[in-house]
Design a protein around this nucleic acid. Sequence first.
DNA 1: AATGAATGAGTATTCATTCAT
DNA 2: AATGAATGAATACTCATTCAT
Lengths: 226, 226, 226, 226
Amino acid sequence: MKKGIKAAGPDHTGIPSEARRKYDPEQTRRNILDVATEEFSAMGLTGARVDAIAERTNTTKRMLYYYFGSKEGLYEAVLDKVYGDIRTHEQDLNIGELDARSGLHTLVEFTFDYHDKNRDFVRLINIENIHDAKYIEQLKTFKQRNASVLRTIEDLLARGVAAGQFRDDIDAFDLYLMISSLCFHRVANRHTFGAAFGRDPSHPRLRARHRAMVVDAVLRFVKRED
Amino acid sequence: MKKGIKAAGPDHTGIPSEARRKYDPEQTRRNILDVATEEFSAMGLTGARVDAIAERTNTTKRMLYYYFGSKEGLYEAVLDKVYGDIRTHEQDLNIGELDARSGLHTLVEFTFDYHDKNRDFVRLINIENIHDAKYIEQLKTFKQRNASVLRTIEDLLARGVAAGQFRDDIDAFDLYLMISSLCFHRVANRHTFGAAFGRDPSHPRLRARHRAMVVDAVLRFVKRED
Amino acid sequence: MKKGIKAAGPDHTGIPSEARRKYDPEQTRRNILDVATEEFSAMGLTGARVDAIAERTNTTKRMLYYYFGSKEGLYEAVLDKVYGDIRTHEQDLNIGELDARSGLHTLVEFTFDYHDKNRDFVRLINIENIHDAKYIEQLKTFKQRNASVLRTIEDLLARGVAAGQFRDDIDAFDLYLMISSLCFHRVANRHTFGAAFGRDPSHPRLRARHRAMVVDAVLRFVKRED
Amino acid sequence: MKKGIKAAGPDHTGIPSEARRKYDPEQTRRNILDVATEEFSAMGLTGARVDAIAERTNTTKRMLYYYFGSKEGLYEAVLDKVYGDIRTHEQDLNIGELDARSGLHTLVEFTFDYHDKNRDFVRLINIENIHDAKYIEQLKTFKQRNASVLRTIEDLLARGVAAGQFRDDIDAFDLYLMISSLCFHRVANRHTFGAAFGRDPSHPRLRARHRAMVVDAVLRFVKRED
DNA sequence: AATGAATGAGTATTCATTCAT
DNA sequence: AATGAATGAATACTCATTCAT
């Protein structure tokens, strides 16, 4: 009945003994979380089925409750995992070291690429919004994490203005909303958009063109006009 | 338990007798559809409860099936109704009669306002995307309807280029995607965005500023540079 | 939505006016009865759907209740119609005029053929037995009608015994049960029999052989042994 | 409301403790299956009520789905159980060890007795035929099981012919159909037959007489005539 | 740490029947 | 004589969760 690689039990695979310990709580937890990410992303919070998750897991439904307490607890754990990543990566860009224009360019491209590659992330944000973000608000570390982007952008804008490159009437929050919109929508709404116009806005063939367009639109928007 | 205003039966509401006819299929249908729009928009397709819809209706659950066949049939009818509106209104703008620049300006403002005012519409699109747009694809009239915006934009771009106002390297589909992104995201993802940054991007106080920003960003993007 | 030939309403078919009278109660009744026979025969009493019957009718569901009172009333009317036929035909055989052996021969062949041709009849009897024959027992004329076959067989046996052709220890009821068994089972249970043995016992290719077999078996059974 | 004897929980029935274990999947399954056999046999597939079955069970409706997946799944399991029995018992007769005539005699008597005693089985076959045997056809083991009787009869016929006892123009399939008809019909159609003629053909008082008649009819049919 | 069995409260849907015209 | 709209009580089935081992 069970699919996937069993995390435990006697085997004869020749894998070193640490890897086939009878009980590996960390791996079990991780395994549940990964399967749950797929299911919640694909089906939504209400649409996801605990049984469906358990079935694709190496373990049983009971363990899911053992580790995460409830369906909602598991969903929150998934959100936490998925949301943590983007902010971490953003900070790895070291945008502070670049000049304002190329810093912004880099940030936009990163944001574009991140959404383009992490469709599960995009779907989960979507799903959270259907639930009025009530689960994500409960994650303690959530707000802290996000503050960082705004600071990055504020810094970028200040430096750009100082260097005479950028307009001085732009709000960091607004600018991030714009970037986010342009990167998010083409992935999040690709299905209805695709259905409406017969073309998938997130199709790989369009990626380079849209990436350039988004960067272009943002840079034109911030550019100081003489 | 709270029943809406009964359309029929002896009442003391003072509503003129024609309005409380016992048999008024059109009104019954409409009533169900309106309540369903709210419920599906608020709860999603899987999260919505047929019982909850029926309860807030002037009629019984049975009639819901009588008119719409199934929960999914009702959901599709809701999508159909809601999606029909925006295209109808778009065409009422008579953008063809304006010059390219103000036509685009008008279209962007309309799109912004429409999303701003019709949150149910935005939520439903979101929900449809979680379901990979599989329900909307079944609506026969759907694709036809949407073609119109693209033609409007193509025309706008052609006229703008001819008048020397617009760049000549812009694709109508891409441009609509951009407009849509900027108008949709701030409404659709207001909850997670709000949770992340402590500010609701669709808050009325920000509306005017964002409206101007979106128009500005789009016009700068299409503007021919000398 | 409606299939079938409409019994009423303005038409331009050129059919003489009597045939397209606006209201033809007799035809409406007959039409409902015929459709119901098919549905009950195909689906059983519990399996049959009033809506399904009404839909295949020239009229509406309401008329079904108008004429037959209830689903069960309609079912009883179907039974009555269908059961009436066989006894009527049996009497048309004028078996009393033949000598005992050929009379029995004729009766068996008739019974065989009747079941072979009237599968709806066979199915309905089957269905009635699942309901412990409680509906057929309510049909007033039912018992009277059946008495006739037993008298026919009694007469046949008496004459056969008198003529030295038949054994004298056979009961008419038993003999009819035997004949009935041999003619009924191959039709009634053709599906499970077919599934079990890969051959349909009521297949036309087997008909002649089985017809001869049944006649043969019965005649051997009654035959006086020296 | 009337619950059967609970297999679990604190009780005061004096049943030894092993018999009222809280977790006994095999017993739970069996219990459901037995109750379902009665219900399906009495009411038919469509007429049977899942709730009615659950109520007479030691467990809840949920377990019915846990073990059998659906009402139809349960119905199939019932068919499987019930059909399995007759073939098993047939083979226990060891007819191959008897001479042709007494072998056939034994087989007919067994078949007669089996149908006479197992009315649920007979009813269920009847019900399956109303459904065109579509459920029984899905049981994998079904066809295999049945092949055995035909081989038994073929062997019997061959030996009887070789011994000069039997005619040589009889097909095993036909002969089994005859036997089956004579044993099945009197049970299956006892209600309509009873209603029609005022006598129940399966009444115990008639059993011995009909049993002899059936054996007699079959043996006369196969007997070689000089 | 891990598990198969068990459960109650829901959940979408159907059905025979009747109402108002 | 005929009809489209309306209904309440059922009906099969599902779901997240917990028990006993």
